[in-house]
């Protein structure tokens, strides 16, 4: 993979890479892609893709709102927010 493609992919993944990382990762990603290309030899004619192996259908729960775990999980989770005002999460300006 050339460095241009790598940087484009990194932007899609919201990953900032420094110069050194671009150098080393371009080599490592290319080595893995070469390994992936081995799959082209495999005869997959007529095979259906497998996304999961045991579940026959999607299992859904009744639309009854959140499961009440009895404790204060939403407040506990909000306590872990890096920056907030009241119960709102603060992020940098969008515009």
């Amino acid at each position: 993979m050339d460095k241009g493609e790598l940087v484009k992919t990194a932007a899609l993944a919201k990953l900032k890479l420094d110069e050194n990382e671009v150098e080393t990762l371009a080599i490592e990603v290319s080595a893995m892609l070469e390994n992936f290309s081995m799959m082209m030899e495999a005869d997959v004619e007529g095979l259906e893709p497998t996304t999961q192996t045991l579940q026959q259908e999607n299992r859904t729960r009744r639309d009854e709102g959140p499961i009440d775990s009895g404790d204060n999980l939403s407040n506990d989770l909000l306590e872990r927010v890096p920056e907030k005002e009241g119960r709102f999460i603060v992020i940098p300006n969008v515009i």
């Binding site: 992919t9 990194a10 990603v29």
Partner: peptide
């Protein structure tokens, strides 16, 4: 910035591969 300083090399490699 957070993902840059928070993730290690192997994790970055795999995220890049998966995104690609």
């Amino acid at each position: 910035m957070s993902r840059h300083s928070g993730f290690g090399d192997e994790v970055k490699l795999r995220i890049l591969l998966g995104t690609y």
